[in-house]
Design a protein around this nucleic acid. Structure first.
Lengths: 234, 234
DNA sequence: CGCCGGAATTGATAAATGTCAATCCAATGA
DNA sequence: TCATTGGATTGACATTTATCAATTCCGGCG
């Protein structure tokens, strides 16, 4: 299962690593290893200190958090990207837990190696800035979405985002379980069901995880998508 | 009102600038200026592109955001610290607006200068990483607070935080208007009033903006503060 | 001092969201 | 094929939160 010193060109090509010195990259990878995880494995538990920087090569990972017996999904990580970079850099406890959603292949780089290379490789430091700035902006958008919109509006905008991602096709499939989607959107599964019904007048129909949107029925007028909340990048 | 080439030692001492080369610091400050703003001035409007990195020397600034006629406060910035760093670094549109809450003195550094120095000064780049990681973690906590807690729980934890900040004193004053507090906590002013009443059984009494907490009445047991949500630092 | 105006509070009500229990449904495996 | 199982849906209901309107409170000012 383990695989020492992985040499995945796609990792090297990641923005985070592409500019750094070869020897530093080598130093990072010497201590790293790759592992395949089955679905639903908890990779990281919030509150623990950061031992490894994680990079997901395939599959998907749920970042979630718990308090007082409640739990909520905060984001989904997809290949190829790192996660829990901020905790690694600050050598601080994880604020979120992480679990595989499906079978996933993940690179683990010891946090102390990351911090050591960060101290000596300037391009790596600069790449981390870009990465962190992007993640910061992503979660600002999540917060705005939560505070400024009702659950119906959040769902409508989520569907428009997915539609966009499917190349603007009128039909597409939901990318994960509805109960997890509900949690991401900050509502209960029961409420998500009702929200889907609530969007029917705007041309949304649902069959299992298959969605069809009749774009002429005014969903955009209802959702009022805003690049400052809904654009995944920028 | 304007003041070219400011030389505030407290700016130089900021973690963000303390490690960088003197000439680079000088280059940043040559293009910078300091300005005094009255209360309620909008310094930054979301959606615009980042012209200046802002540093607050005195006073306080509200970061807020709007959508579809609604508005919400997201965070408060206090001296001495920067704000809207991520947008500056990425040369991307602001995701939040900023307004002074009181009379405030603010340093403005042209964003292009910041980016130019970022490219050549390695210590500066590393300092930005630390700063961004910290801000990222701060907003993750904000999101967790919003998604995992009811408004009553958010208020209870906020009060415990303030109490802590007042040195654990049984009495302290709220630091800003209740309607703004309501917005920060994600509720309406009316609801905040009722939430204060709802905490009365737990030993919270309110008179204007003066708060007294009888800590033995079980507010901590109710609030269940959690460092992974409520600790301002780490 | 008394008036004014904005914020805060209160009450009544509505809307949004959550909870609980009872199905329904679709995928899985014997 | 059928039984099992877990997610999804539905209905009934409770709770939370928002809205609207009417005071009340309080600080500044004439």
């Amino acid at each position: 299962m383990d695989m020492p010193s992985p040499d995945y060109p796609e990792v090297r090509r990641l923005h985070l690593f592409s500019g750094m010195a070869g020897e530093h990259y080598g130093a990072l990878m010497r201590g790293a290893y790759v592992q395949n995880f089955p679905p639903q494995i908890e990779l990281i538990t919030e509150g623990e200190t950061s031992d490894f920087l994680h990079i997901i090569l395939s599959g998907s990972v749920d970042l979630f958090s718990s308090w007082n017996g409640r739990e909520t999904s905060i984001a989904t990580v997809r290949p190829i990207s790192t996660f829990i970079l901020a905790a690694t850099i600050r050598d601080a406890p994880y604020l979120m837990s992480a679990r595989t959603l499906e079978k996933s292949r993940i690179v683990l780089i010891p946090s102390q190696d990351v911090r050591a290379v960060f101290e000596v490789d300037n391009e790596f430091a600069r790449a981390i800035v870009t990465e962190l700035a992007q993640r910061y902006r992503a979660i600002v958008k999540i917060t705005k979405n939560l505070k400024l919109r009702t659950s119906l509006e959040r769902l409508a905008n989520y569907l428009l985002q997915q539609r966009e991602q499917a190349g603007g096709a009128s039909a597409f499939d939901l990318e994960f379980e509805k109960r997890r989607l509900a949690s991401l959107l900050g509502m209960t599964p029961e409420n998500l069901s009702r929200a889907f019904k609530g969007l029917r007048p705007y041309g949304v129909s649902v069959k299992g995880n298959h969605i069809v949107i009749d774009i002429d029925k005014g969903i955009e007028r209802f959702a009022k998508p805003d690049p400052l909340i809904d654009d995944p990048d920028s």
